[in-house]
């Protein structure tokens, strides 16, 4: 595929500067035959799916405590294919968090955070925080009894975050209490503030990628394929498979709304947070009232926050990327899964 033939291929390609673009993309090499390298693109794709389906939902959603539940009920019940679009959005959100987490995890165990990729690592972690924020605020929007409970419990849990806890708690609630303001707050963050911030972070993340010739340091020994067209075609196949998965989940496994939020009702028994909070939920549930002289829950959440900071600072602590980091990452994953599983019992 010579550059000359591509250019002669069309008026549009000429104007897009297709040849230099594809040449640049082709120069970027990806190790062949490792599924972990498709997670980044899949995460980005899932984000785009959510933006698209989310924009569709805003056509009918009413961000008002009195009308929110009814409007989501209308979306799932009355608007043609509304149930599908709603399920699509919710399922792709779960898959988005899962893929983002898996993406970061594989970068961690492959020690892909090493220089010169420190900033990619940091922007990736910021993406995870914003992604969880998006999922949490989105969870509140239907203003169902479960959403109301999650808003209460979630914002209460934010209290234990050191230093900024009280502020974060008030911020999440849009006031001192969970009220209709909480819903409007969550809406603003879900559709405007967080997507805007995430777009910037993702743009920076991709920009940093283009500054390097390969996504991983010191992988020269392996067989590589060019990003374009070889990797793109493989990624396209992966994305098609992901779409099939979401489609199947959305059609066969609906996400029921439950009942409208009613502050007078007692919280549903055995309430479970969204799955990505299960581990922390279990930690809080098992927390003793006091640890080393401070509130047990506060101690554990502080410890978790400290761990998060450590993970963020990893490229600067473990500059060479030792095998021990990878082992620790696997252990941590195992512990988190164990905690989440025990929360379900």
């Amino acid at each position: 595929m010579s550059a000359a033939r591509d250019d002669s291929g069309g008026w549009l390609r000429e104007r897009l500067g297709w040849a230099p673009l594809t040449a640049a993309l082709a120069a970027y090499r990806i190790p062949r035959g490792n599924i972990a390298f498709y997670l980044g693109g899949t995460t980005l794709f899932l984000l785009l799916v959510q933006v698209a389906s989310g924009i569709m939902l805003t056509l009918y959603y009413k961000p008002d405590a009195a009308q929110a539940f009814r409007s989501v009920e209308r979306i799932t019940g009355e608007i043609e294919y509304g149930n599908l679009v709603h399920s699509f959005h919710v399922w792709s959100s779960d898959l988005f968090i899962a893929c983002l987490f898996a993406h970061l995890f594989f970068v961690l165990v492959r020690r892909g955070f090493r220089a010169p990729h420190e900033l990619s690592w940091l922007t990736g972690l910021m993406g995870l925080v914003l992604g969880v924020g998006l999922a949490f605020t989105g969870d509140i929007l239907p203003w169902s009894q479960r959403a109301y409970t999650d808003a209460r419990v979630g914002s209460e849990f934010a209290k234990y975050v050191p230093l900024v806890g009280t502020w974060l708690n008030r911020f999440l609630r849009g006031g001192d209490e969970v009220t209709s303001n909480t819903l409007v707050h969550a809406y603003g963050f879900h559709v405007a503030a967080l997507p805007a911030a995430l777009t910037l972070v993702v743009a920076l993340h991709i920009f940093l990628l283009t500054r390097r010739s390969t996504p991983v340091p010191e992988e020269a020994s392996r067989e590589t394929i060019p990003l374009y067209p070889d990797f793109f075609v493989r990624q396209a196949a992966a994305l098609t498979a992901v779409l099939v998965v979401i489609m199947t989940l959305a059609i066969f496994f609906e996400r029921p709304l439950g009942i409208a939020a009613d502050p007078r009702l007692s919280s549903p028994g055995g309430a479970m947070p969204p799955w990505y909070f299960l581990a922390i939920h279990q930690i809080l549930r098992a927390a003793p009232t006091e640890l080393l002289g401070i509130d047990g829950a506060r101690f554990l959440v502080s410890a978790a926050c400290l761990l998060g900071l450590l993970v963020a600072a990893l490229p600067f602590i473990d500059r060479r990327g030792s095998k021990a980091t990878a082992v620790l990452a696997w252990v941590l994953l195992f512990v988190l899964i164990l905690l989440a599983a025990s929360a379900l019992n």
């Binding site: 569709m56 009918y60 043609e80 294919y81």
Partner: peptide, 8 residues
């Protein structure tokens, strides 16, 4: 389905 959804 998404086109149909957008149609009020």
């Amino acid at each position: 389905p998404f086109l149909r959804f957008v149609d009020p």
